[in-house]
């Protein structure tokens, strides 16, 4: 398949991983802005984890959906947000 169409076809779900120690209000609101500006209809998940005791919680976002695109992912990378696709 053509590479140009890959994102549209295969991108289903975006999972954003957050370290609980690094959860700061500012970071979160920035992240929110980013996600809002890329509204769409792909599922959005969060995983919040804690290193010391190795706990993680999967959180599904039901209302918020995003449009997964190259731009969004680049932006996330720049912000050093770990993410996973599908």
């Amino acid at each position: 398949m053509l590479l140009q169409e890959v994102m549209e076809t295969y991108a289903k779900k975006l999972t954003i991983k957050l370290n609980i120690d690094e959860l700061k209000e500012k970071g979160i609101s920035e992240l929110k802005d980013t996600l809002i500006s890329h509204k769409g209809d792909h599922a959005l998940n969060f995983v919040v984890y804690e290193m010391e005791e190795q706990i993680k919680v999967n959180l599904l976002s039901r209302k918020q959906k995003v449009q997964i695109s190259s731009e969004l992912l680049t932006e996330l990378t720049e912000k050093e947000v770990h993410y996973k696709l599908n």
Partner: peptide
């Protein structure tokens, strides 16, 4: 170059 994200992800 234009497809870096796609390549990384898929």
């Amino acid at each position: 170059d234009d497809f870096k994200t796609e390549i990384n992800a898929f």
